[in-house]
């Protein structure tokens, strides 16, 4: 893999993970448990979709094969998507929605914080904008993990259940592959070992306050999202998300 290919892959991963989580959160429109939480979910979704657009625009320039940001988002199939498996998991109950957000936010926050200093100027500037939003997201999701985990017997049971369900998708966040390693060597991506320690450290800290038990570090993990091997859920998300632009490819206004 050339340096250029690794860079393209890396930017697509950032774009796809933000986009798919944004799409997942958008599914809560009209269905969130409280109006404030609906506003929050839509706000976070909006931030993520906006960040995804910034990443897609850069990815389109790097790939340079005539496709624009919209084409990358709406005209690639599941095996071309490079998002983390975690973000494509269904909303389930609100504890699962929040735990998914929390695991992602911790990863997102530390990743973006490092990318602010990337040797690639464009990445650094997109990250500088996004990290402020991710910080805000993390404050909210960690507060909810604590409130539900250390809440009633029922909310505690559900938050623990959410941790148990989602833990197997978290290994991918902190296990580097060739692309991650190449990006670190190029002075762009975060130090994989540092990211792993930061992620585990914060997850443990918040879990302790929330009185929930995270999974084992050596637990068996599902991997593959970063190379296009997805769970059964992604195809369904794309079917909903991509229907309109695929059905009406020439439409310029909706």
């Amino acid at each position: 893999m050339t340096q250029q290919q690794a860079l393209q892959e890396y930017v697509l991963r950032l774009a796809d993970s933000a986009m798919i989580l944004g799409q997942r959160l958008s599914e809560l429109t009209g269905k969130a448990p409280a109006v404030e939480e609906e506003l929050a979910s839509m706000n976070v979704a909006l931030d993520l979709v906006g960040q995804a657009r910034n990443w897609y625009e850069y990815a389109a320039e790097l790939i340079d094969d005539g496709r624009n940001a919209d084409n990358l988002c709406f005209l690639r199939d599941a095996h071309d998507y490079r998002n983390l498996l975690l973000v494509e998991q269904p909303n389930e109950d609100y504890a699962v929605t929040i735990a998914r957000q929390f695991f992602f936010d911790v990863w997102h926050y530390f990743t973006l914080k490092s990318l602010v200093n990337a040797s690639d100027e464009r990445i650094a500037s997109i990250a500088a904008k996004a990290v402020k939003e991710a910080t805000y997201h993390l404050r909210r999701s960690s507060e909810w993990v604590k409130r539900m985990g250390d809440g009633t017997e029922e909310s505690h049971r559900r938050m623990q259940n959410a941790f148990d369900i989602l833990w197997r998708f978290t290994g991918e966040l902190i296990t580097p592959d060739d692309v991650d390693n190449a990006m670190f060597k190029a002075g762009i991506g975060p130090d994989p070992e540092q990211l792993r320690q930061d992620w585990l450290g914060m997850v443990r800290e918040v879990s302790a306050q929330a009185t929930v038990t995270p999974g084992a570090e050596d637990a068996w993990m599902y991997m593959g999202g970063k190379r296009g091997e997805h769970t059964e859920h992604l195809g369904h998300i794309l079917a909903v998300m991509q229907f309109l632009p695929r059905a009406y490819p020439d439409a310029t206004t909706w």
């Binding site: 404030e36 506003l39 929050a40 909006l46 931030d47 926050y109 910080t135 993390l138 404050r139 918040v206």
Partner: peptide, 30 residues
Amino acid sequence: MSLLGVDEVIACPHCGSEHTERLSEFGSTA
């Protein structure tokens, strides 16, 4: 602003009171 810190006191724009509470971290716009 701290990462996981406590909220600051926000004064009411109508009456100036600092006796306010946060309903949601997210409002009508981003």
